[in-house]
């Protein structure tokens, strides 16, 4: 069963004074299966946050429809079984993290005993045990993000929606969020998150959708979306200090690009070129092979191509 189903979702805004029409979403469709970690990608202004806000009931839907856990969006039933972390979350800064979680638990209809037990467990889990008595206004950005994650999880939701959860975090904070997402997935929960950090998305997600210009451009498993054929191969060679410059030039000419550093030559050989022949030539010149690294298209390459396509289309329209 799908946990999120979005069909032809459209959202149109009107600018405040001139009432100019802005089509933020132009028929977005996708579904998220139970137990999946689903990544939602797109450049700034692509419609990621608008989609999430529509799903959370923060924005009205102009066209199409969406369902969460079988309940129509927006509805209280849909929000009852999910948790949400907004982008750059803001909380009541006079509350402590325990009080914030107590408020979230109250709104989710939890009993006092359940609220206390769950809050205690989550505070430890997100690493805020040392800051229990501290007002949120004294929290760092990373601590606030962790408090927000705890708030999203207070009602032990079946679905967790995270809008840019790694945004602004240091590498340790990012790792903690990644671990938390994986823990939720291991517990059988569904995680839907948007991110700009493509390496995180690639390593965490079962499936991804790329949203550009208010439309979904690609959807599927990361490895299915990218081209698996080798696009180029990096060959790193160690060369003798007294090697003839002409030999080096001949070797460099075999690569599409080359870079000479102290005692080394880095060759980037285009896909389709015989790498073995390059290596043989290097041996013949007295060079030593340090590394041969084939390169494939990454999610980032695909993402950048989609963004470039969109920018190109805009240029043509102009």
């Amino acid at each position: 069963m799908d946990v999120i189903t979005v069909t032809d979702l459209a959202k149109t805004y009107r600018t405040p004074f001139r009432r100019r029409r802005v089509d933020a979403l132009k028929g977005v469709s996708f579904s998220v299966a139970r137990g999946e970690v689903f990544g939602f990608l797109g450049p700034n202004g692509a419609g990621k946050t608008t989609t999430i806000r529509c799903l959370m009931g923060l924005c009205g839907i102009t066209g199409g429809k969406a369902e969460i856990l079988g309940a129509p969006v927006p509805s209280r039933a849909a929000r009852q079984r999910m948790g949400f972390l907004p982008e750059q979350p803001y909380f009541y800064d006079y509350l402590t993290v325990s009080e914030l979680l107590d408020l979230g638990g109250r709104l989710a209809g939890m009993t006092a005993a359940d609220r206390r037990a769950r809050a205690d467990q989550l505070i430890v889990r997100v690493g805020l045990d040392h800051a229990r008595g501290l007002a949120l206004k004294k929290f760092s950005k990373g601590m606030l993000q962790r408090a927000g994650l705890a708030l999203a999880l207070i009602n032990d939701p079946e679905l967790v929606v995270l809008d840019e959860p790694m945004s602004g975090l240091d590498p340790i904070g990012r790792k903690e969020v990644r671990d938390l997402i994986l823990e939720e997935r291991d517990a059988g929960k569904t995680v839907f998150f948007s991110s700009h950090i493509l390496s995180d998305v690639e390593s965490l997600c079962d499936r991804v959708a790329i949203c550009v210009g208010g439309k979904i451009r690609d959807i599927g498993r990361p490895r299915d979306l990218v081209d698996a054929t080798t696009t180029e191969t990096e060959v790193r060679l160690a060369l003798a200090d007294d090697i003839d410059a002409e030999v080096v030039a001949a070797l460099a000419a075999r690569g599409a690009r080359s870079r000479r550093t102290a005692g080394e030559l880095l060759l980037t050989v285009a896909g389709g070129v015989d790498v073995d022949a390059v290596l043989a030539a290097a041996h013949a010149a007295g060079g030593k092979v340090i590394a041969v690294t084939p390169r494939h298209e990454t999610l980032e390459d695909l993402f950048l191509r989609r963004v470039a396509d969109q920018a190109g289309a805009r240029e043509v329209l102009r």
Binding site: L58, A77, Q80, P89, F91, Y92, L107
Partner: peptide
């Protein structure tokens, strides 16, 4: 204005 409403309205609250 402070966007605290995002975390509250997304809870099961009419």
């Amino acid at each position: 204005q402070k966007r605290t409403i995002y975390s509250i309205i997304s809870k099961p609250l009419a």
